[in-house]
Design a protein around this nucleic acid. Structure first.
Length: 564
RNA sequence: GUGUUAGUAGCUCAGUAGGAUAGAGCAACUGCCUUCUAAGCAGUAGGUCAGGGGUUCGAAUCCCUUCUAGCACACCA
């Protein structure tokens, strides 16, 4: 468990509360019953210490003293652990903490000991999370927005695992409902067009993408005109099966090319096969939330403050996506017993959140355990021009097109740079052309530099380094302290990622870490044969930084080159 | 129209459970390789945090309001 810094922060909070209580007993502060929520932060400016507390400012009114007086009383009546070198009262009354040399040494020892497990914490308490993401429609190829969602979801899963959750990654295949009817209709017409002399019209509301045409073509190459005159039911079954299989396999292979991993591919159709959709409608009916009107079955969402009610079963007898989605989430929570469900959705689904939450709440599920991460659309820019990606026009930029132009390291890194819930412009020209400007190389370069240092050492030195007792107290310059301190913040980052469900923080963290490392590298010579004691300490530090960079690049599934 | 997300340097973005002098990268300019990798480092310049109110010791961050933009408001998924 890596949590030196976390422990110190907790210790400070406890000690300050203790100090306040003691001061009250000694009549130094006026009586107040509650324990305070102590806020410890990392100051933006290094001159304000490594940790800082604003408790004296927040309690000035309560204690009717100036913040500085309160801070002084608190410090006089407290005794912090030996990881704290000194404290000071600064500015308008902040209490600032400076770390001791022991702290720096212990952080490095922990990294070296835990290696890739450094940063692991257990705030998740092994709770089971079902993380559903990507879930692109199988009626056509995936577009670039799906790539962003896939990469963010994949990375979020890894981060949550680090935070101590048990994460199950799932892809929901929408292979049922109205859209499958539409998919069949589109395929069927394209298929018949191939063999018909007459001009069969292709309706506006069908899928206009190239994909449908290609599928019909492939189908006809295998079966020729065998099914042209079959009855509707037979034709539908064979065409839909053929099309879905092809598309889903394509999705699976594309996903693999992006190194995105799923534990399970959940078929919407299975919900129907197992009668789970009808069961859920019945359950809602039992709770008096369902009524029939205009030959459709409705869910009474207005009861929960919605503006309008929702259809569960259409006039044509087909259940809606909404009905299936309730059944799907019931299955996640109640049948498969997940503690928390996280869905990574395109932000165009945001309207769906409240009605789904209301629906599962009415089935006795705590809707607070359903969390939605919204991901906004990606626009692709090339030569300052917007590349459209409408599925309907058939000229969409597919997910697979991108990987043919830009290398995967770069794609994965770039998509992990910007917060999910912000729209993003992906500059294709820049990503391809100007490799050296890309932050991914900046980070990888630091890794390669460290590898190179170790490669330059001969076996004898390496052996001595491995076996000697390293004096980490040598690492006492500003830049070394700063670098070590930053490595200790890694755990805090993992906590914030699981709190905000924003994996992109880790990318920004590793960029900052490498920035400090590059600065250190320029400022301090590492291989110094005259002073082996110092050299080994610095090698130790390099090794620790390398461990973290490597770990984060692994999370991002970006390669860690040893040479560049 | 209603809901929702946003607006921070020329460009791309960090920073929001209120904190100290608002930060990076790119682009511009100036330096640093006989030295562990210059895909690097150091420095200069660049700001009415969209506008206006409010809350308080303190606001880019919270509240109200105006403006601008994306998205959603289907018996699509």
């Amino acid at each position: 468990m890596s949590k030196i810094l976390i422990d110190i922060i907790e210790n400070i909070k406890k000690e300050i509360n203790l100090s306040i209580n003691n001061s009250i007993k000694k009549n130094l502060l006026i009586s107040y019953e509650k324990n305070f929520d102590i806020n410890i932060e990392i100051p933006a400016n290094k001159n304000n210490g490594e940790l800082s507390c604003n408790i004296a400012l927040n309690t000035a009114k309560i204690f009717k003293k100036s913040p500085k007086q309160i801070a002084k009383i608190i410090l006089n009546n407290s005794n912090f652990c030996d990881f704290i070198e000194k404290t000071e009262i600064a500015g308008v009354g902040f209490i600032n903490f400076y770390m001791s040399q022991k702290f720096y040494s212990e952080v490095l020892k922990e990294i070296k000991l835990k290696k890739q497990d450094y940063g692991k914490i257990n705030i998740g308490e092994n709770k089971k999370i079902l993380l559903e993401f990507m879930s692109a429609n199988p009626t056509g190829p995936m577009h670039i927005g799906n790539a962003r969602i896939g990469i963010l979801g994949d990375c979020l899963a890894s981060c949550l695992e680090l935070a101590g959750y048990e994460v199950f990654r799932e892809y929901y295949i929408n292979d049922a409902g109205n859209q499958i009817e539409k998919f069949f209709k589109s395929l069927d017409i394209k298929y018949r067009q191939i063999y018909s002399e007459e001009n069969i019209e292709f309706p506006e509301d069908c899928y206009h993408g190239e994909n449908v045409k290609e599928l019909a073509q492939e189908f006809s190459e295998i079966y020729e005109n065998k099914y042209i005159n079959s009855d509707l039911k037979t034709r539908k079954k064979i065409l839909v099966n053929f099309g879905l299989n092809k598309n889903i396999n394509k999705i699976k292979s594309d996903v693999e090319k992006y190194k995105i991993v799923f534990d399970n591919w959940f078929s919407e159709n299975d919900l129907y096969k197992d009668n789970k959709v009808k069961e859920i409608i019945q359950k809602l009916k039992d709770k008096d939330l369902v009524y029939e009107s205009e030959n459709a079955v409705w869910y009474n969402a207005k009861k929960f403050g919605s503006e309008k009610n929702e259809v569960l079963t259409r006039q044509n007898g087909i259940d809606t996506y909404f009905a299936a989605d309730i059944a799907y989430h019931y299955d996640k929570f109640k049948t498969r017993n997940f503690d928390i469900c996280i869905n990574v959705w395109g932000s165009d689904h945001h309207g769906h959140i409240s009605r789904l939450k209301n629906a599962i709440k009415s089935l006795g599920i705590n809707d607070g355990n359903l969390k939605i991460v919204l991901v906004q659309f990606v626009r692709l820019i090339k030569d300052n021009e917007l590349i459209k990606m409408s599925k309907r026009t058939g000229k969409s930029i597919q997910l697979i097109d991108l990987i043919q132009e830009v290398n995967l390291d770069s794609i994965r890194f770039m998509f992990n740079l910007k917060e999910p819930n912000l729209k993003m412009d992906f500059d294709l020209g820049l990503a391809v052309k100007q490799d050296f400007q890309n932050p991914v190389y900046y980070v990888q370069y630091a890794h390669a530099r460290i590898c190179n240092i170790f490669k330059s050492l001969n076996d004898e030195i390496l052996k001595e380094y491995e076996n000697s007792d390293i004096n980490l107290k040598n690492l006492n310059s500003n830049i070394e302290s700063e670098l070590i301190y930053y490595t200790s913040l890694y755990t805090l980052e993992i906590i914030k990622i699981s709190r905000d469900l924003d994996p992109t923080r880790i990318t920004r963290y590793v960029i900052n870490l490498t920035k400090i490392f590059h600065r250190f590298y320029n400022e301090k010579k590492i291989v110094i044969s005259k002073n082996k004691d110092l050299m080994y300490s610095r090698l130790y530090l390099c090794e620790c930084v390398k461990i973290i960079i490597n770990k984060i690049l692994n999370i991002l599934k970006v390669s860690s080159p040893e040479y560049m």
